[in-house]
C-alpha cells in the first residue's frame, strides 16, 4: 500500500500557484525526504495532506484515504509535526502530551514520551518558558504519541541545535524501525541525506526530481564549486577558464574566482589560470549548496551559462554562495 499519493495536485492562492500539478508516491515503510528551498510549496503540500488547505485541482491520498474527505481518519493514524506552529503557553509540557494522548485515544504515558524526546525535566513547567528547541521536541513528542502509521514532519529540525537535530534523526530511525512511514520536509540537504531512503525535490511548486539518496549524493558530489584566490582578474583569464572542459560557470568577486565544475576538472582549471599568467594564491572546494543542487536537477542537463555538454546531474549554477533566486534566474535566462 502507498502511504501518500499525490495526483495532479495543484494549489493556487489567488494568482499565485503554490503547487503545480504535483504527482508523488511515498511507499509504506520508507523515510521520504521532501526537499526544497523555503517557499517552494513543501508546507502547502503538507497542509493539503492534513486538510488545512484544499486543493485547487488534483487529489491527495493518505494511507489510501482521500485527504480531504476522510481527514479525521487520516489524522487519527498520522502523527503531525507542523511548521510554524505555536504551543499553548499557559499549559505545561505534560498537559500538552495529555491533550495529545486524549485526542488520539492513545494509551501512552505522557511522561515516557517527554523523556523520549528529552524534555522530561521540564514536564511540569509552563510551555511559555520553553526554548524553541524544547517546543520543537514537545511537538515531536505529540506527533509520535499513539504510535502512528505515518509521521508527517514539517521542517522538524527547526530550532534544534546540532545535537538536538541528531537526536531527532535517531528518533526518526526508531520510528521507521517500528514500522512507521516518515514523510519529512526540509530545506537542509544534510538532514535529508542523513536519514532518508528517498527524496523528492520541490521547487517553485513543481516536483523537479524524485530520487534515491545515493542518486542525490551523486548529484551533490558533481555539483561542486572551486574557490580560487588569484593575484588579479581580467577578461582574458575568465575567458580561458570558461574554455576548460567540465566548467559550467565562472563568477568573480574581487580577486576571487568561483568556478562551477566537475570534480575532475579542478586541476585543469588551476592549470588554465596559471597558464594565463595569473598566480593562484589559494584555492578550496565547496560542496554544492542545496540551491545549486536544485539547479542541477531542474535544468536537467540544459546548458544555461556555460556552454559545454554536461551530464544530467552536473552543476549549472555559478553562484558563489548559491542564493536561490539568482541561481534560478541564471538558469532561466
Amino acid at each position: 500500500m502507498t502511504a501518500i499519493e499525490l495526483a495532479g495536485l495543484t494549489k493556487r492562492f489567488g494568482d499565485v500557484a503554490a503547487l503545480r500539478n504535483v504527482d508523488l508516491v511515498v511507499e509504506e515503510g520508507e523515510v521520504f525526504g521532501f526537499l526544497g528551498p523555503n517557499g517552494a510549496g513543501k508546507s502547502t503540500t503538507i497542509n493539503v495532506l492534513l486538510d488545512f488547505a484544499r486543493p485547487t485541482a488534483g487529489r491527495a491520498e493518505v494511507l489510501g484515504m482521500d485527504a480531504q474527505r476522510r481527514s479525521q481518519e487520516v489524522r487519527r493514524r498520522t502523527g503531525v509535526l507542523p511548521e510554524g506552529f505555536e504551543t499553548y503557553d499557559r499549559l505545561t509540557g505534560r498537559q500538552h502530551l495529555e491533550f495529545a494522548v486524549d485526542s488520539k485515544n492513545a494509551e501512552d504515558d505522557p511522561m515516557r514520551i517527554l523523556e523520549r524526546v528529552g524534555i522530561g525535566d521540564a514536564a511540569d513547567r509552563k510551555v511559555g518558558g520553553y526554548s524553541k528547541g524544547m517546543t520543537q521536541r514537545l511537538a515531536l513528542g505529540m506527533a509520535i504519541t499513539g504510535e502512528p502509521e505515518l509521521l508527517i514532519l514539517d521542517e522538524p529540525s527547526t530550532g534544534l541545535d546540532p545535537n538536538g537535530a541528531r537526536e531527532m534523526r535517531e528518533l526518526v530511525r526508531e520510528e521507521r524501525d517500528r514500522g512507521a512511514t516518515v514523510f519529512f520536509s526540509s530545506h537542509i540537504l544534510e538532514q535529508v541525506e542523513a536519514v532518508c531512503d528517498r527524496v523528492g525535490i520541490l521547487q517553485e511548486g513543481k516536483l523537479v526530481a524524485e530520487d534515491s539518496v545515493s542518486g542525490l549524493r551523486n548529484a551533490a558530489g558533481t555539483a561542486q564549486t572551486l574557490q580560487v584566490a588569484v593575484s588579479h582578474v581580467n577578461d582574458e583569464l575568465l575567458a580561458s577558464v570558461r574554455e576548460v572542459s567540465g566548467v559550467s560557470g565562472v563568477e568573480t568577486n574581487g580577486e576571487r574566482l568561483s568556478v562551477a565544475c566537475d570534480p575532475d576538472a579542478k586541476t585543469r582549471v588551476l592549470e588554465a589560470i596559471e597558464e594565463a599568467g595569473t598566480t593562484v594564491e589559494d584555492f578550496s572546494t565547496e560542496e554544492a549548496s542545496l540551491e545549486e543542487l536544485f539547479v542541477s536537477y531542474t535544468t536537467d542537463g540544459q546548458s544555461a551559462s556555460g556552454g559545454s555538454d554536461r551530464e544530467r546531474a552536473s552543476a549549472d549554477s555559478d553562484e558563489e554562495d548559491g542564493e536561490t533566486e539568482t541561481g534560478t534566474e541564471e538558469v532561466r535566462a
Binding site: L50, D51, F52, S71, Q72, E73, R75, R76, V80, L81, P82, E83, G84, F85, E86, T87, F99, A100, S103, K104, A139, M142, A143
Partner: peptide, 9 residues
C-alpha cells in the same frame, strides 16, 4: 496547526 494536527474535526 497543533490542534488540527490531532484527530479533531
Amino acid at each position: 496547526k497543533l490542534l488540527l494536527g490531532l484527530p479533531h474535526t
